[in-house]
């Protein structure tokens, strides 16, 4: 316990928020990267598909944004954004915030990468059956739902925590 006490609760809360945004952004970078490679391949054959390919590429990018949302919730909770910083926050509250951030951190990381693969496959639809490309979006949105659930539980937990 002494180890954690030497940092204090605030540091733990910040670590949670950082993981939520950091891991989600890693996932989104990887996901949009996978989709972007596939999109470039299609666009090199037919540049007129750029717009549609880009729409599919940005879909795995939302997880990073959800991570940012969670970070903002943490930041406003502990008052790092211009408010009064809760520097004397207890270790228990720090742990609570840290744990509340985990669903977004891991849900965001993994769902973004997997959604990126689905998006790349959707870009395959765009290449072969351009009229049905919108179905590729629907497949991506199915994965997105689980990122939304991760965001939601993280939000509900952070929202419910009372700082001590």
């Amino acid at each position: 316990m002494g180890f954690f006490e030497s940092f204090g609760g605030l540091a733990l809360a910040l670590l949670g928020g950082s993981l939520a945004v950091g891991l989600s952004c890693i996932g989104s970078a990887k996901g949009t990267g996978i989709a972007g490679e596939a999109a470039s391949g299609v666009v090199s054959e037919d540049p007129s598909k750029f717009g549609k390919a880009m729409i599919l590429q940005v879909l795995p990018g939302t997880q990073g944004l959800y991570g940012l949302v969670v970070w903002f919730l943490v930041a406003s909770k502990i008052g790092i954004l211009g408010g009064s910083l809760a520097s004397g926050m207890g270790l228990a509250s720090g742990w609570q915030i840290f744990i509340a951030c985990l669903p977004m951190a891991f849900g965001g990381l993994l769902s973004a990468i997997i959604q990126g693969r689905v998006a790349a496959a959707g870009i395959g639809i765009l290449a072969k059956k351009p009229d049905d490309w919108a179905k590729g979006i629907l497949f991506c949105v199915m994965v997105e739902f689980y990122a939304i659930l991760s965001l939601l539980v993280s939000f509900l937990m952070i929202n419910g925590i009372v700082l001590a």
Binding site: L65, V69, F145, I148, F155
Partner: peptide
């Protein structure tokens, strides 16, 4: 879930 997530964002 979708309603809350949308409004939180």
């Amino acid at each position: 879930a979708l309603m809350l997530a949308g409004s939180v964002i």
